[in-house]
Structures are given as C-alpha cells and as structure tokens.
Computed example of a mutant assay.
Amino acid sequence: MALIKEQINILIVDDEENIVEFIKMGLEAEGFKVYAAYDGNDAVYLAREVNPQIIILDIMIPGMNGYEVCSEVKKTIKTSIIMLTARDEIDDRVRGLDLGADDYMVKPFSFKELLARINARLRNSFPELTNVINIGDFRIDDGAHEISFENKLLVLSPTEYNLLRYLLLNNGLALSKQTIIENIWGYDFNGEQNIVEVYIRYLREKIGDKEHSIIRTVRGVGYRMLVV
C-alpha cells in the first residue's frame, strides 16, 4: 500500500529492546515515523503526545500492562492497536479484543506479516491517508479510478471496478452474494442474485483466473478473494 507515510506515526511498546529495534528499523525503512516506549506508563504518555495511527503493544510490560494501556489509550485516541504476546491463549486474545485491540500477533512473528497487518489496519481505519493501495499483484489507484494486475492496467467498467475493489479490500473474507449486491448495486436492487455470478465471471476472465484460485467460490456462501 502506498500511503502518505510522513503523516503516519507508529508507536512500538515493548520492554525487549532487540524486538523494538527490529521493528523500528523495518518500519523506518518503509517510511513510517516510529516512536518507542519500554513500559506502560511511558506508552500512555507518548500516545497522547504523538497520536499514533498504529500502536504495536506487547502485553507483558512493566508498569501498566498491555491490557491496561490498551484500555486507557482507546478512551481518548483514535488508533489501531496490534497486540503482541508470547502467549497463544484464546482467553488472552479475547480479553485484548474486548478492551479495544484491533489485531493480535503471537511472538515470534515475521516482519512481513506485521507489515501486512499494519497496512490492513491503516486501510480500514485511516482511508484518508491512502492514495494507492497495493494488494499482492493488484494495484488500486482511487484517484485515477484504475486497477492494475501484474503491472498491466485492467479495462474495467464502473461496476467491475467497484466490485473488484470491494473484493480486494476484503481480501481473505468470505462474502455472501447478498452482501456483495448491497455494497455494489445498493440495498434497493431488485434484480436477480445471479448478477453477481455474471460479474465475477467477467472479472475472472479479465485477470486470467481460469482455475478460480484468486476469486474463489465459497459453497453455500458466495465468494472470497485470496491474494497473497
């Protein structure tokens, strides 16, 4: 995803300096403005000072723990929180999400996966900072109202553009035909549901998806875009 990165602040909160440096180095190389805190109290103070769009927050930190930081920060700041932990317990995940966390990663993790999750959070929570979105081999340029695939511009009708964009922004999620109709054709659409099948076929032809491995059919549900 191409973003106005100089406007994006990311706060890393972890008491392990090597992890902080590893993440900080990678994010700065991507063009983000990165801040770091090593305990919960400093994290809350710094969050209020710099208003980060993303907080990468370890649970087991000195002072206020990650859960407390998450709860406190979410009261006053619009931010997306990705919680980090060495513990892979369902209860821990549920507790964090209930307190307002937006995503969850278990250590150890790859930087590539973390970056993908950051981009997803920015795309969903701060669309105003997005001008061009890269998802796998697809490139969405909302300004030009164009989508490219494998560096080739796709010739799309307005409906095809809107449908492909919607599928891409919901990459990985199974979407029912009704949901697709409501978002692309509108709630007052009175036509047949097979309109979705028709346009999915158009899109598959245009991106060469003969095996249906990119736009997948989910039996009994609808369709799922799967781009990695």
Rank of each mutant, 00 (worst) to 15 (best):
M1R: 01
L3I: 01
E6L: 04
E6K: 04
Q7E: 09
L11C: 04
E16L: 02
E16D: 03
I19W: 02
E21Q: 09
F22G: 08
F22K: 09
I23R: 02
M25W: 15
L27G: 11
E28K: 14
A36K: 05
A36S: 10
Y38T: 11
L46H: 07
G63Y: 14
K74Y: 06
K78G: 02
K78M: 01
T79Y: 10
S80T: 03
S80Q: 03
R87G: 08
D91Q: 15
D91K: 15
D92W: 12
R93C: 15
R95C: 05
A116T: 15
R117Y: 05
L122D: 04
S125T: 14
P127T: 09
V132R: 13
I133P: 14
I135T: 03
D137H: 04
I140L: 07
A144W: 08
F149R: 00
E150G: 07
E150L: 13
N151W: 03
L156K: 04
P158E: 00
T159W: 08
E160V: 02
Y161C: 12
R165Q: 12
L167F: 15
G172Q: 11
L175R: 09
S176K: 13
K177S: 14
Q178N: 15
T179C: 11
N190H: 08
L203Q: 06
R204Q: 09
K206A: 10
E211I: 08
I215C: 04
R216Y: 12
T217N: 09
R219H: 05
R219M: 05
V221L: 04
